[in-house]
Amino acid sequence: MTPTDLDRATVEEAYARWAPVYDVVFGAVFEPGRKAAIKAAERIGGRLLEFGVGTGFALPAYKRSNRIVGVDISEPMLQKAREKVEKEKLPHIEGLCLMDGAHMGFADASFDVVVAQFVITVVPHPEATLDEMARVLKPGGEIILVNHLGAEDGPRAVFERWFARKARKLGWRPEFQFARLRNWALANGTVDMPIARDVALGMYTMVRFRKRSAAEIAAGRVDEIETVALAG
């Protein structure tokens, strides 16, 4: 294990600590990114997987015409989400499940959209988790990520590499770069190359992957990458 790796125990411990204060600390900070992710997801609509649902902060913002299933690795975070669903009477929430993202218990092609807000950089096994997201997604659907992504070079990249060891204790991986997502798409082979754009004045990046049909995969079609104003 390298100094920047995360294991499940580290992540669970970190988010058990965050659960009581997560909405207060991060609610307003993450709100622009959440709005962008939800807007993109609802262009497709249908049955949505909210991966890394956490305390359920985003759940009330989805239109009631959608059906939402939330999963998380942290039981304390999920308990907050369950309380929110009960308190706010959210009929569009199908279920909230405790799951390891790298081993989800859903059938293939179960969802029209998979949304992961501020989570792909903190899961223990990002590539295996993305593989699972692609597996449970229907052809033509999208994986939609919103996250801070690490700088490729320059002073911020140097700082993020230095900070990585300390951030691990908080359950964060600040040096996670866009190139890692692009490389995953190439290796996975079932999704088009990622479309990326900045949101929230460059604070976060939204990355979208469309799942290809069996015919497209057989034909070897891969759409070219489209990158819009990625943060440096």
Rank of each mutant, 00 (worst) to 15 (best):
M1K: 06
T2N: 14
P3R: 04
A9N: 04
A9D: 12
E12Y: 02
W18E: 12
V21K: 12
Y22N: 11
A28N: 12
E31I: 00
I38Q: 10
E42S: 00
G45S: 11
G46H: 00
L49Q: 04
F51E: 03
T55S: 14
A58G: 01
A58V: 15
Y62N: 02
Y62F: 15
R64V: 11
I68T: 04
I68P: 00
V69H: 06
G70H: 07
S74G: 05
E75K: 13
L90R: 11
P91H: 13
D100R: 09
H103E: 14
M104I: 13
G105A: 15
A109M: 08
S110E: 13
V114T: 09
Q117S: 15
V119W: 01
T121F: 01
T121K: 10
H125W: 07
E127P: 02
A128M: 11
M133R: 03
R135Q: 12
R135D: 02
R135W: 07
V136E: 10
V136N: 06
P139D: 09
I143C: 07
H148I: 09
L149K: 00
G150N: 08
G150A: 05
E152P: 02
A157G: 01
F159K: 01
F159S: 01
W162P: 02
F163W: 08
A164F: 04
R165Y: 08
K166L: 15
K169Q: 12
G171A: 09
E175D: 15
Q177V: 10
N183P: 00
A187M: 14
V191S: 10
V191C: 15
D192R: 10
I195H: 13
R197W: 12
D198V: 07
D198T: 10
G202K: 08
M203S: 12
M203G: 04
Y204Q: 13
Y204E: 07
T205C: 08
M206E: 11
S213E: 10
A218N: 06
D223I: 03
E224F: 03
V228F: 09
A229M: 09
G232D: 04
